[in-house]
Computed example of a mutant assay.
Amino acid sequence: MAYAGSAVLEGDAAAFAAAIRSLVNNPRFSDVTFVVGRERQEVFAHRCILACRCQTFQGMLCQPQPGAQEPWPPQTPLVLSHVQPEVFLAVIEFLYTNSVTLNSLIALEVFTSAVEYGLVDLRKLCVEFLTGALSVELVCEALQAAVTYGQMDLQQHCLVFVEDHTREVVQTRGFHELSGAALGVVLQSDRLAIDEPDLIRAVREWAHVSSVECIAEAWKCHALRKGRGAPSRLYQCRRGTQPREHHSYLQ
């Protein structure tokens, strides 16, 4: 007796997605509760969804409660005091729907959470959003996050923006709060659109907020940048540096 071949037939994807979305932060049928942020806001979830979507949550939910042998019981809330409720809800939204609602106020923290939870696709969505939302005020915070977490794709996008808007960026609070490592990424660029003395003044102002450790390195890096050409071109000026008489000696 012959049997017809099997086939995968799909129903209404939109209806399915809407049904799953309705479970986001829904206390009905939830079996795990998070207490999030300083506001101690309750967020409801379903451990089967969290566990199959994120290994970090899988490990968190499988770990026994301190002093107990069994996995974390449903009636005991998990306290996450270090994250904003809006940020955590964005992560939960992604885990349930594979999409996320972002704005410039939470995007960086969602990006940070994505890295910490190992959510590669969410991290990529955050980078996509941040790349399109970069501004003079936001770019240094984004660069700092990229350097801290070793995210080279976001770091490169931020650096290109800084190169094109250097004069405005160095006057922001975000620039003055960069770590030494993040500032070093900026100072190593050949394409900063600012004259050398102006940049050094900006670094000195940064030092009042941070430290003086990078001033000497900044001066050396920008006064004499090694060229990549023939041996006769040992040094070359950067893009934003204005021509000066003594530059002839650098050739």
Rank of each mutant, 00 (worst) to 15 (best):
A218F: 00
E163Y: 09
F129V: 11
L61W: 02
M1K: 10
G5H: 11
P71Q: 08
E86W: 03
I200D: 00
L78W: 03
G240N: 03
D121S: 14
I49V: 15
L119N: 02
C52N: 02
E205L: 14
C48V: 11
V170H: 05
V136M: 06
G132F: 08
R167V: 11
L134S: 08
Q171R: 13
V212E: 07
P66N: 05
T172W: 05
C62D: 06
A193E: 12
L234W: 02
R47M: 03
G150Y: 06
I49N: 04
L183M: 03
Q41R: 13
E109Q: 15
Q63W: 05
G67A: 01
E42D: 03
S99L: 04
T56F: 15
L23S: 10
P27Y: 02
T166Y: 05
D195Q: 03
N26A: 12
V169C: 13
E86I: 09
G132E: 07
I200T: 00
E93H: 14
C48D: 13
A15M: 03
S211T: 09
H208N: 05
K220E: 11
T33K: 12
Q236S: 09
A90D: 01
E42W: 04
S248F: 11
D121G: 02
G184T: 05
Q242H: 00
V120Y: 06
A14K: 11
V110T: 03
T101S: 15
E116R: 15
H222Q: 13
N98F: 14
L199T: 04
V120S: 08
A90T: 06
Y235P: 02
H165M: 06
C237Q: 10
Q41E: 10
Y235K: 13
H157W: 10
I20V: 15
L89Q: 14
L138H: 05
F57R: 03
V186Q: 11
F29P: 00
A107T: 01
V43P: 00
L154A: 09
A216N: 10
F161D: 05
L102R: 07
H208R: 13
C237S: 12
V100N: 00
V203F: 02
H247V: 04
L95E: 00
N26I: 09
K124Y: 14
L178Q: 02
A133F: 05
F111D: 02
R228I: 12
C221Q: 12
V115Q: 11
R167K: 14
H246E: 12
A4P: 01
I92M: 15
G67C: 00
I49R: 03
S6D: 08
L61V: 04
G37I: 02
G5N: 10
R173K: 13
I49Q: 01
V139A: 09
T112L: 08
L122K: 12
H157D: 07
Q84I: 02
D198R: 05
N103D: 13
G174K: 13
L154D: 09
A4V: 07
R238E: 01
Q151D: 10
T56Y: 15
V162M: 14
D195H: 01
A202L: 06
S99F: 05
A2Q: 08
Q63H: 11
N26S: 13
